[in-house]
Amino acid sequence: MRAVESAGQMRAVVEAALAAGINHLETAPAYGPAEVHLGAALRELAIPPQHLLLTSKLLPGVDLASGQAQLRASLQRLGVARLDNLAVHGLNRPEHLDWALQGDGAALLGWAQAEGLVGQVGFSSHGSVALIERALASDRFGFCSLHLHLFDQERLPLARQALAAGIGVMAISPADKGGRLYDPPPELVEDCSPFAPLPLAYRFLLAAGVSTLTLGAAQPADLGWAVALAGADGPLTAAEQEALARLAEAGQRRLGAEACGQCRACLPCPSEVPIPALLRLRNLALGHGMTPFASERYNLIGRADHWWEALDASACHRCGDCLPRCPHGLPIPDLLAATHRLLAAPPRRRLWG
């Protein structure tokens, strides 16, 4: 989704990926010219199909005929007769899941497999835990792509549930949406020492059993982490566990008694404010110096449709409903107001939208 400025850029990234031992390429029609450039790269590099796993995606909600035409167009752009994996791109709302299980989406996915155009069917989701649980329990999907990050572990139990059921799990953007870990602030570098933040975060996910980690390369040099982490699966070492413990302790020390424990006892909010998600960003900004990342995410709220939260901290009406439920006695309305003052900034455009 990032190597899309030219066919030459895509070819260079794909060539470097193959050299690094990567065998899974994931794209989508929604990523601008990505499929066109990737198809050209595959043809020019003459890669035998059996050497790669190829995944693309379709947005939910289309009727059967339109979905069939979109899938055929993806195959044509990629220059292949079959996808290994087809994902519902952004299964974020209940109506998206209904479409995939009972509506035109169910017919589309069934047709694609029956015609031999795709191998397994899965989904990516930025939705709620309850929605993802429903999707995993449906027995319809062979894999899922979820936000699984060292600094956002809410969905890790879902990943374990999926893996136990034989469902493949891909972590969405551990380096970028997981905290811009390719450009860590000094506090975070210190907190993770002697390890760099990005490989420590990847190792955390590998040790949790996550099947596939994404790299999101825009240039060949971005794939250096794939080389460095080759064969780096298995349990966390004692040194890695100690580093993660120091990381947690450092964040707690800087936040003091105002650290949000992410227990979610404050929910539901009568005003539908996503309190834990907002206070998690505050935790990262004040606890680990990750203000640029936290501000970037905060200022996408309400501007990314169903791909991210709809309400920011300014939607808090100070009703106090959350206060008696917080086991730590946090002054939640005050913390939300402080979070808004800290992170609110002019909006930035999403990479894809």
Rank of each mutant, 00 (worst) to 15 (best):
Q153R: 15
A7M: 07
C316G: 11
Q161V: 03
P324A: 12
P292M: 03
T339M: 11
L286W: 11
V36C: 07
D63G: 09
H340F: 12
R280C: 08
L267C: 00
G231L: 02
F123G: 04
L206W: 09
A226G: 07
A196P: 02
A107K: 15
T214I: 09
V227F: 04
Y298Q: 07
R350G: 07
G320K: 14
A16E: 05
R349G: 08
G119E: 09
A313K: 14
G302D: 03
L279H: 12
L244P: 01
P157T: 12
P292S: 03
D334F: 15
R155N: 15
L91F: 01
A3P: 15
A313F: 14
G224D: 08
H51A: 11
V62S: 05
D321T: 15
A337G: 13
R246G: 00
L236D: 05
M1R: 08
L64Y: 14
A259C: 01
Q70P: 01
R280A: 08
C269F: 02
P94G: 00
A87K: 08
E240D: 04
L150M: 12
G166T: 13
L255G: 00
F151C: 03
T339V: 15
R264P: 00
C260I: 06
S128G: 13
S138T: 10
R254V: 05
A245W: 08
A245G: 00
D222V: 13
E133S: 14
L343Y: 14
M290I: 09
A30I: 13
A135P: 01
G289M: 09
P327F: 15
A41N: 07
G353N: 11
A17W: 12
L223D: 08
Q120P: 07
L101C: 05
V4M: 02
G329F: 15
L223V: 12
G261Q: 08
A250F: 01
L148G: 09
A248N: 04
L109G: 06
Q68E: 12
A313I: 15
P324F: 15
F141M: 09
G216S: 09
A81D: 11
L223P: 11
L255D: 00
S193K: 08
D63V: 10
G105I: 03
K177D: 03
A34L: 07
P274T: 07
R140N: 08
L108Q: 07
H288G: 03
D321R: 15
H24P: 08
A294D: 06
D191G: 01
L198G: 01
P333K: 13
A17H: 10
